[in-house]
Computed example of a mutant assay.
Amino acid sequence: MSDDRRLEILRAIVQDYVRTSEPVGSKALLERHQLGVSAATVRNDMAVLEEEGLITAPHTSAGRVPTDAGYRMFVDRLSAVKPLTRAERTAIERFLHGAVDLDDVVTRTTRLLSSLTHQVAVMQYPSLSRSSVRHIELVPVGGTRLMVVLIVNTGRVEQRVIDVGRDLTGQEALVADLRARVNGTAVGEALTAVPDRLVGVVDAVAPEDRPVASAVAAALRDALEEQAEERVVLSGTANLARVNTDFPTSLSAVLDALEEHVVLLRLMGSLSSVPDADRVAVSIGAENPYAPLRTTSVVATSYGVAGGLGVLGPTRMDYPQAMAAVRAVAHYVAEILDG
């Protein structure tokens, strides 16, 4: 029973400290929470929590604040992530479904997450290694020019106009045949596997048509190489300035780390590696592998199998609210990109 009571006291300390940013004392706990025990019992339980490294006293303050370990226990003991209200879910759905293309989806998602959580929102563009071809379109645009359009299952679109070295006027049958061949070969395949498969398309056409097929295959390979670049988008960095006192050393170190997109990609990838729509991973303080981010916490999940999204902020974070927002937004992003 005492363990349950101490967990309740820890939960109360976390909630009060997140809300007020002030160290929490036993008197404040008794005034704000119905703990049903005496002041002496609360003080004794706080002493035990401090011995266990779950709370600590900053400087000479009579109050206590959670440690990274205390936040971890709080997050791990959450019985469930409180769902967003119907109004919040409706607002998210409407805002995201207004997007016109993938870039707009990413921009809207990060802006929305930042607004909901008041943290820095981070989103990976859909990963090449986890994407596949949805459709390839070939469109003659006059003379020897042909537009090649690559559409990926995540909504990414790459198009370019190439010179195939042959007048395509009246060559509708050739274009249709090539379109059928490249789609038959590439649709549903992982992007990383497509270049090798295109070799077979070139070899299969009539010798006189191979220069055209080779030009199309080269254009697609170029498009796939461009798709290979991993990207991450941030929104709400200014939110960190609002809580700069939460960073014990320097906020500038955190801001510099956020400029290192490779670091963010690795961090998001490690936290969102399991494609489970209900799984939200939380990395707290010293658990972050990159030293400048060890004064922060990251809440992240995957959207479908395409990539990760989440929020980054101080360890003094409203974890239940952040986890609920990240999970809900990821669910709607997956629906949009899979639609």
Rank of each mutant, 00 (worst) to 15 (best):
M1E: 11
S2T: 02
D3M: 05
D4G: 13
R5Q: 09
E8A: 11
I13A: 08
V14N: 12
Q15G: 09
Q15I: 10
R19K: 12
T20P: 04
V24C: 08
G25L: 09
E31K: 11
L35T: 09
G36L: 07
V37S: 10
A39S: 13
A40E: 05
T41A: 08
D45S: 10
A47D: 12
E50N: 03
L54H: 06
D68E: 10
Y71G: 11
R72S: 14
M73I: 11
M73D: 08
D76E: 15
R77Q: 14
L78H: 12
V81R: 10
K82T: 13
L84A: 05
A87S: 09
E88Y: 05
A91M: 13
E93Q: 09
L96M: 08
G98K: 07
D103R: 08
L112S: 06
S115G: 12
V120F: 03
A121M: 06
A121H: 06
V122R: 01
P126L: 05
L138D: 03
V141N: 08
G143L: 04
T144I: 01
M147Q: 15
V148K: 03
V148Y: 02
I151V: 04
V152W: 00
Q159S: 05
R160G: 07
V164M: 10
G165V: 03
T169V: 09
L174F: 09
A176S: 14
L178K: 03
A180D: 13
N183Q: 11
G184I: 00
A190I: 00
V194F: 03
D196V: 04
R197V: 00
D203R: 15
A204D: 15
A206W: 04
E208R: 14
D209C: 07
R210N: 11
P211C: 02
S214G: 09
A215N: 05
A218T: 13
A219F: 00
L224A: 02
E225K: 11
E226V: 01
L234T: 05
L234P: 02
G236F: 02
N239T: 14
L240G: 10
A241H: 15
T245S: 11
F247P: 04
S250D: 05
V254F: 13
D256I: 01
V263T: 14
L267T: 07
L271H: 04
S272C: 01
P275K: 05
P275D: 03
A277F: 08
D278I: 01
V282Q: 06
G285N: 05
A286C: 00
A286N: 05
P292K: 10
R294N: 08
S297E: 05
V298T: 15
V298S: 08
T301M: 01
S302Y: 06
S302D: 07
V305N: 12
A306I: 00
P314A: 09
M317D: 04
P320K: 11
A324V: 05
Y332K: 07
Y332S: 02
E335K: 14
I336C: 06
